[in-house]
């Protein structure tokens, strides 16, 4: 049984949505871990963790949806990519283990520094690894027949390290904007300062990655720099500049929610840019989404599930966020 082209397109959209959903939901949450070393020990750190403790598990579930969705909708892409980015994926998983348990362990331990370090280190490692995976996919992987045929270091390049650092910077930005939104007083002041720094870092990173990507392969280049594609993609960089200006304004006005929303918009734009570069490849230059797609009846079966469940999930997730809304203090919600 063959895939259906329309459904394949829809599924590429859903996977894109799930991955973006993951970045939106878990980005700020990992970002807080990345920022941890710059937050004061004690109250500030506890408050920062309190803002995400009731929701981190749900946030991380989007990662399972992204990975599981890729497995389900494009099994061939999953089967080729996972061995290709083996080391960074394992590193990401181990990082997530350390930071995930730190939520509970921090509350039980007397040696707080160990689990603070695990939280910060695990979050940073996970974010960096995700960026490396992104870079490794963009730069392409070796494929023979239906499987990966490169070595176990193929993912490592200056470009993938650059994307790794960029994602760390971007998540840190989301984390500081989240703290602006959810905290007050001293911690919020700190978050404003951090947002400025990480904002600049993220912009530099976006520029660097954008500058490097078109030169990775001629296909990307022609897409960005020749007509008619150019007319179609030109708005993306322009909107990035506009967003950046608005973001700086918002920080200057000490706006509380705008910085977070604008940072998300920045991510959305970068994500769109990546999508433009990638389409219609599942593995750049090697396997298209149409070749990687699963059988038609699997596509339909899952589409029903997504159609019914996703609105419900968004509903109760929003409800959980609403319950824990408002400014957060350091004593927790017990």
């Amino acid at each position: 049984m063959a895939p259906n082209d329309t459904l394949t397109l829809i599924w590429a959209g859903i996977i894109g949505l799930a991955i973006f959903g993951y970045v939106v939901m878990d980005g700020f949450d990992l970002g807080i871990g990345i920022l941890f070393p710059w937050l004061d020990k004690g109250e500030h750190r506890d408050t920062a963790v309190n803002t995400i403790a009731p929701v981190w598990d749900g946030n991380e579930t989007w990662l399972v949806l992204g990975g599981g969705g890729l497995f389900a909708a494009f099994p061939l892409a999953y089967a080729i990519l996972m061995p290709a980015v083996y080391a960074p994926v394992i590193a990401m998983l181990l990082g997530l283990v350390f930071r995930g348990v730190a939520f509970e362990y921090r509350a039980r331990t007397t040696r707080l520094w160990i689990w603070d370090a695990a939280f910060a280190g695990g979050s940073t490692l996970a974010a960096f690894s995700q960026g490396v995976v992104l870079g490794a996919v963009l730069q392409g992987v070796s494929v023979t027949g239906r499987s990966y045929s490169g070595g176990w270091w193929e993912w490592l390049s200056p470009f993938s390290v650059l994307t790794g650092v960029s994602v760390v910077a971007g998540y840190a930005l989301l984390g500081s904007c989240w703290l602006i939104y959810r905290t007050e007083h001293g911690l919020q002041d700190k978050a404003f300062a951090l947002a400025k720094l990480t904002g600049i870092a993220t912009l530099v990173a976006v520029l660097a990655v954008s500058a490097a990507t078109p030169f990775l392969n001629t296909d990307y280049f022609s897409r960005w720099f020749t007509m008619p594609g150019m007319a179609f993609v030109a708005p993306v960089p322009i909107l990035v500049v506009v967003t950046a200006v608005l973001f700086i304004r918002a920080l200057q006005n000490r706006a509380e929610i705008q910085p977070f929303l604008l940072a998300l918009l920045l991510f959305l734009l970068s994500f769109t840019g990546l999508g433009i570069s990638m389409f219609p490849w599942a593995i750049p230059g090697k396997v298209t989404i149409y070749q990687a797609a699963t059988a038609e009846n699997s596509q339909i079966f899952m589409l029903i599930g997504v159609g019914v469940m996703l609105p419900i999930i968004i509903g109760y997730t929003a409800y959980a966020y609403w319950i824990f809304r408002g400014k957060v203090g350091h004593e927790g919600y017990h």
Binding site: G68, S298, M302, G305, I313
Partner: peptide
Amino acid sequence: IGPLMAYEVLT
């Protein structure tokens, strides 16, 4: 098995 595991995530 992919779709069954996707259903596990969703439900």
